[in-house]
Every structure is written in C-alpha cells, then in structure tokens.
C-alpha cells in the first residue's frame, strides 16, 4: 500500500515516533554507556571498564548501598505481597459480590492513593505518623508502601477478573464444589496472570518510590532511591550510574516477565 492513498497513514507520524523513542531512550543509553567509563570524572571518557560495578560491591559506599538494597527489596517484597493479597480479596468482592451500596465507595477508597498527588500523600502520611506518635523508621516506610501499592496491585487483578466469565465457577459448583473450593481450584488459577501482573506492578512501584519514602523514613534507614538521591545531590558519580544501570536491567526483566504473563491466556 502506498503512503498517499492510505487513509490511515499520515506523513511525518513515523518520524515523530522515532523522535519520541529517541527522547525516551537517549538519557538511559547515555547513563548506561557512562557506567562503563573507566575515568574517575563523569565528564571525560576514559575507555571501557567494569570498575564502577566492582566499586558498587566493594567500594567505600558499598556498605551503605548494600544496606539500602536490602531495605528496598525486603520492603518491596513484603509490601507487594501484602498489597496483592488485599487487592485479590477486594477484587473478588467488587467483581463477584453483586451490586451493593458499599461497592462504589470501596472502589473510590482503593483507587484513592493514585488519585491523590504523591506529595500530598507524603505530607499526609508524615503528619499522621507524627500525630499518633509513630517513630519514623523501617516500619513507617513499610506500612506506607503497603497502602499505596494496593491500587497498583488491584487494577490488573480487577481487569483480569472481569474477563473471566462466572460460568466457570458456576460449573464447578454444579458439580458440588463448595464456593471456597470453586475459588481455590477454578477462579484463583484463572486470575493468576492478573495477580502476577499486579504483584510485579506493586513491586516496582514500591522499589521506585522516592517522594513518600523520603518523608517517612527514619534515622539511617535508607532505601535505594533515597540513598541514590543523597548521593547524586552532591553530583552524579560513576558508581551511581552503575547502580542505575543494574536497576534498569532489573526493571526491563520485570516488565518483560509481566508482558509475557499478560499475554498468557488460560481461560481457553
């Protein structure tokens, strides 16, 4: 088909797409490339080297970043798991609970953390912890993460459940399965792709969060984003680029998994 006669195609749109891709990727590519820079200074190129990756694991700041990584990952795992469990229960009640008065307010409450601007949520959480006398530390970060991860876990699960016809569990119950059995044996496995996507989404959101964590973190408890922020404020250093590149690779792996999981259709 030729460009001029096809009503779908507009001249220049392909070029704009390439511009868009360039803008999205240029900074990431530059940082990835410079993370392999042998030079001490970020401004000059001194040839390829893995020294900054070694530095991340054994350099002077390694202990700080390792502790931050342990905090970040433990918080992300616990928060994402808890949020996914809560979201799965909530999605079942919303999608399979019939029509009832509390349904719309519940949905509103569940999606509240993504409606409220992040800085506002951060301020509200800080004030709240302060007013109930909760000392800032690891637990305040964890609790805040569980709360704001719920909608991110919820949305993919709800979307998935809506695509599953209730004939599946009705058929099971016609065969004398209890409702609990029908859920465990039929509905839950069918929901799995949504649950996995929800978990991954919540995991990444927790791992990436800076603004809220920065407000509620306590003495010496850093997560990777707050540790990186503390470090880059004094200037971008090559070891930060190496950490960023590793986090970038991790994100790519996670998105790739979630991409394939979302294509996995087990209702057929």
């Amino acid at each position: 088909m030729s460009v001029n006669t096809d009503v779908k195609t507009y001249t220049g749109f392909r070029a704009m797409t390439l511009v868009c891709m360039f803008i999205l990727y240029a900074p990431l590519i530059v940082v990835t490339a410079y993370s392999f820079n042998a030079s001490e200074s970020i401004t000059t190129w001194g040839g390829w080297s893995l020294r900054w990756y070694v530095d991340v694991f054994s350099g002077p700041e390694s202990a700080k970043f390792q502790q931050a990584a342990v905090n970040s990952f433990s918080i992300a795992i616990i928060a994402a798991t808890t949020a996914t469990a809560i979201a799965t229960a909530a999605a079942t009640a919303i999608v399979r609970g019939g029509k009832y008065r509390l349904r719309t307010p519940s949905l509103g409450l569940i999606t509240l953390p993504i409606m409220v601007p992040e800085i506002v949520l951060a301020v509200a959480t800080l004030i709240f912890f302060n007013s109930i006398g909760f000392t800032r530390g690891y637990m305040t970060i964890l609790v805040a993460h569980i709360a704001f991860c719920i909608p991110f876990a919820y949305l993919p699960i709800q979307a998935r459940m809506q695509g599953i016809e209730d004939t599946f569990e009705h058929a099971a119950m016609d065969l004398y399965a209890t409702k609990a059995q029908a859920f465990r044996r039929i509905l839950f496995p069918l929901m799995m792709p949504g649950i996995i996507s929800g978990f991954l989404l919540a995991f990444i959101v927790s791992l990436d969060d800076f603004i809220i964590t920065n407000f509620v973190k306590g003495a010496g408890v850093e997560t990777l984003p707050t540790a990186i922020f503390g470090s880059v404020k004094q200037g971008l250093k090559p070891n930060i680029m190496a950490i960023s590149t590793m986090l970038l690779s991790l994100s790519v792996v996670m998105v790739t998994i979630s991409y394939f999981v979302s294509k996995w259709d087990n209702t057929k």
Partner: peptide, 17 residues
C-alpha cells in the same frame, strides 16, 4: 497472613542487623 507477618518480622530484623 501469619506466614506473611512472621516473614515480615524476620526481614525487618534482617534489615536492622
């Protein structure tokens, strides 16, 4: 849930060695 709570505690301890 119980499993979650206990693993949360374990990890929290681990994080603040």
């Amino acid at each position: 849930m119980k499993l979650l709570t206990s693993s949360a505690m374990a990890l929290a301890l681990l994080a603040n060695t």
